[in-house]
């Protein structure tokens, strides 16, 4: 097991190198001279030249990459062109906000998705099943920026449709507050719902189809033939097998939330990594863009690793060697 984890860790190295090359070349993929782009319109040739010198853009690409990667390994991703502060500082200030948001959104989507999926599978082809699957289809098809805006309209601003009145306690929970993220759990309710809905729908559908497949397996019939109660057949025999593919989806989803919180963060004015990235792109702050993309990629790779390892615990059939 330890050997497997070490080997998998080693295997992530080439992936990370690939990612770093991609991230590094971001700067060169954009048309035009990065220094000129960063300096902005109307900058003097001298300013541009200085900037170019400062960023080391006159060196050959491989030298620049070497410099980028050696300092990155040491945790130095350069300085923000705009604020002048180290990229790592900028990121770490925002990183945990996004992680927190993603964790809550994952918890929410797993909780709702699993229950909905199991119920749907157990009540296969009943009205309950159809109802849950229609809701899931909605959840899946709704773009989350739209959902976020609707939620703000309805609950935060109190403009419920059809002139409905919102109970005071609900308003108390979800209303917009001027204060920033993290000061109250109430701040998180709407963003987490916005971010987690699509995920819940995906997990619900995945759980359902996985459960249905497992319920049709021979060993489920064996369990029934042993006299196991229907409840235990589902929870002890079916669920553990059905969860195996769902775990992958959950892991990927968490990674997706981290990178995909951009819109949610923008709509709810949350100062997370997503916002940081968007702002950096807008301001052509390349070191920040490189830094955020790199961090998100690393997290994604690590989450995948964790998913693979959790496979080992769930599925005894996978031969890791």
């Amino acid at each position: 097991m330890t050997k497997y984890i070490i080997r998998r860790l080693l295997q992530t190295i080439p992936v990370l190198i690939g990612v770093s090359i991609l991230v590094f070349s971001l700067m060169f993929l954009i048309p035009g001279d990065p220094a000129r782009v960063m300096a902005g319109e109307g900058a003097s040739e001298q300013t541009i030249e200085n900037l170019r010198e400062k960023l080391g853009l006159n060196d050959p690409a491989y030298v620049q990459y070497g410099r980028f990667i050696t300092s990155a390994v040491k945790g130095d991703l350069g300085n923000s062109v705009r604020s002048g502060r180290p990229v790592m500082d900028e990121i770490s200030a925002r990183f945990w906000i996004t992680v927190e948001l993603s964790i809550y959104a994952t918890i929410l989507s797993v909780f709702i998705g699993l229950i909905a999926g199991i119920v749907s599978a157990v009540r296969h082809y009943t009205l309950t099943d159809i109802f849950i699957m229609i809701i899931a289809l909605f959840g899946l098809s709704m773009p989350n920026f739209w959902l976020g805006l609707v939620l703000i309209q309805w609950f935060a601003l109190g403009n419920l449709p059809f002139g409905m009145d919102m109970p005071a306690w609900l308003f108390d929970i979800v209303q917009m507050r001027p204060s920033g993220w993290g000061e109250s759990w109430r701040q998180m309710v709407l963003p987490v719902i916005t971010l987690g809905t699509g995920g819940a729908a995906i997990i619900a559908r995945m759980t359902r189809s996985s459960m249905l497949e497992v319920i049709g397996q021979d060993y489920i019939r064996t369990a029934r033939a042993k006299g196991v109660s229907e409840r235990l057949v589902i929870y002890r025999h079916a669920l553990k097998n059905a969860l195996i593919p769902v775990v992958t989806v959950i892991g990927l989803e968490f990674g997706g939330f981290l990178g995909g919180a951009v819109l949610t963060e923008t709509i709810f004015a949350i100062n997370g990594m997503g916002r940081l990235t968007i702002d950096a792109i807008r301001q052509r702050d390349f070191p920040i863009v490189q830094g955020t993309v790199l961090v998100i990629s690393i997290i994604f790779v690590l989450v995948n690793l964790l998913v693979d390892i959790s496979y080992k615990f769930l599925n005894k059939r996978i031969d890791l060697n």
């Binding site: 021979d218 019939r221 033939a225 553990k240 097998n241 005894k316």
Partner: peptide
């Protein structure tokens, strides 16, 4: 009690 045709798939893999 009952035993089935497919011993490969009749036991729970986990």
């Amino acid at each position: 009690s009952m035993i089935f045709q497919e011993p490969m798939t009749s036991l729970n893999p986990v």
